[in-house]
Simulated assay, not measured.
Amino acid sequence: MTERVLITDRATKIIDQLREKHGELMFHQSGGCCDGSSPMCFPKGELMLNETDVKLGTIHGCNFYMSKDQFEYWKHTQLTVDITTGRGSSFSLEIPLGLRFVIKSRLFTDEEREHLEPVEYASEEA
């Protein structure tokens, strides 16, 4: 299976720090509010999901979601979550560390598209 969302080693270290302090975590790809289109990290369950949210996969033990409308634009790309220095203007948990998560993307190859990991709608999760 071709994964839709990946994570860098640098970003996993920050998730480990955040998990120590906040417990289980989740990600939601922002649709342009606050800090542009940044992935935002929350304590698991803090952001209310609904039938318009799509689960793209799991990164370092954290579910990764985005809105269905935004997924229509991004469904042809593989996303990689990374970390960079600088304070974003979102509510994401890493902001007080002087860091922020960012997305790097690339188009899937034809072969990868044939083997894409399926997505789930948040309303389908048990």
Rank of each mutant, 00 (worst) to 15 (best):
M1P: 15
T2K: 12
T2I: 08
E3A: 12
E3P: 12
R4P: 09
R4F: 07
R4K: 11
R4H: 08
R4M: 01
V5D: 02
L6Y: 07
L6D: 09
L6G: 06
I7F: 11
T8G: 11
T8M: 12
D9G: 13
D9W: 12
R10L: 13
A11T: 06
T12W: 13
K13V: 13
K13E: 15
I14Y: 14
I15K: 05
I15D: 02
D16P: 14
L18W: 08
L18S: 05
R19N: 09
E20P: 11
H22Q: 04
G23K: 06
G23C: 05
L25T: 00
M26V: 01
H28G: 00
Q29I: 01
S30Y: 10
S30E: 11
G31L: 12
G31F: 13
G31Q: 15
C33A: 15
C34Y: 14
D35G: 13
G36C: 10
P39T: 04
P39W: 08
M40A: 05
M40W: 11
C41S: 04
F42C: 01
F42Y: 15
F42W: 05
K44D: 05
G45V: 06
E46P: 08
E46A: 09
L47R: 15
N50I: 12
N50W: 14
E51P: 12
E51G: 14
D53R: 11
D53A: 07
D53Q: 11
D53I: 03
V54Q: 07
V54C: 08
V54I: 12
K55G: 00
T58C: 07
I59L: 10
I59R: 07
C62F: 08
C62V: 03
C62Q: 06
N63R: 02
Y65E: 01
Y65L: 01
M66N: 01
S67G: 15
Q70G: 10
Q70F: 13
E72P: 13
Y73W: 14
W74D: 03
K75A: 05
K75E: 03
H76L: 09
T77V: 09
T77Y: 09
Q78C: 07
L79H: 03
T80I: 00
T80Q: 00
T80H: 00
D82L: 03
I83W: 10
T84K: 12
G86V: 02
R87F: 05
S89F: 04
S90N: 04
F91E: 01
F91H: 09
F91G: 01
F91C: 01
S92L: 01
S92W: 00
L93E: 00
L93M: 00
I95W: 01
I95S: 02
P96N: 01
P96K: 00
P96Q: 02
L97H: 10
L97G: 09
L97V: 05
L97D: 06
L99Q: 15
R100Y: 05
F101L: 00
V102F: 09
V102M: 08
I103E: 05
K104D: 08
K104E: 07
R106D: 06
L107C: 05
F108E: 00
F108N: 02
T109K: 08
D110Y: 09
E111L: 12
E111N: 13
E111Q: 14
E112D: 12
E112M: 11
R113V: 06
R113S: 14
E114I: 10
E114L: 12
H115L: 09
L116H: 11
E117P: 10
E117V: 02
P118E: 04
P118T: 02
P118W: 05
Y121K: 07
A122K: 08
A126W: 11
A126T: 04
